[in-house]
């Protein structure tokens, strides 16, 4: 009696069908790779019209972010993400999606409490912990350089 209750987590796991990991990884690989390839093409294009390497990289980021925000606003990015999973989450376009989607969703709640407060509701942690980890590493580097 009550065997299910005792090992409930394991039991639930055993009755929950899983989606095919290999298939999902393949989709993520294809779309994620394609976005990166597209980025590389943009970099090369900017370089061939005479921009230096660093500026070409900057233009590429701005353009990728712009396109991702447009696709988010048109409702295409979430459809692509359903197929691609990590393939659309990991590239910088996923970051752009995570900033623009709450901005669009919460506009009804106003400029300050809606868009303003919520715009970082998903991307905020990325910025916080990115800054924090680079700060810690920087501190160690600074201590190293002083000694």
């Amino acid at each position: 009696m009550d065997d299910i209750k005792k090992n409930y987590d394991d039991y639930v796991k055993s009755v929950t069908p899983t989606t095919s990991l290999a298939k999902n990884m393949w989709h993520a690989f294809l779309i994620g790779g394609a976005i990166c390839l597209f980025g590389q093409i943009l970099i090369t294009l900017f370089e061939t019209i005479g921009t230096d390497e660093e500026t070409a990289g900057a233009y590429e980021i701005i353009l990728l972010v712009f396109l991702a925000v447009m696709l988010t606003g048109l409702g295409i990015y979430p459809k692509l993400a359903k197929y691609a999973g990590a393939g659309t989450l990991v590239p910088i376009t996923g970051f752009a999606n995570s900033v623009s989607s709450p901005a669009i969703e919460f506009q009804k709640e106003g400029q300050i409490f809606g868009v303003g407060c919520r715009i970082f509701s998903i991307a905020g942690p990325v910025i916080l912990f990115g800054i924090l980890s680079s700060w810690v590493l920087g501190l160690l580097y600074w201590i190293g350089s002083v000694i």
């Binding site: 990884m25 690989f29 990166c36 990590a86």
Partner: peptide, 8 residues
Amino acid sequence: GGLICALT
């Protein structure tokens, strides 16, 4: 790029 996404 694809590999990083697939691992994630």
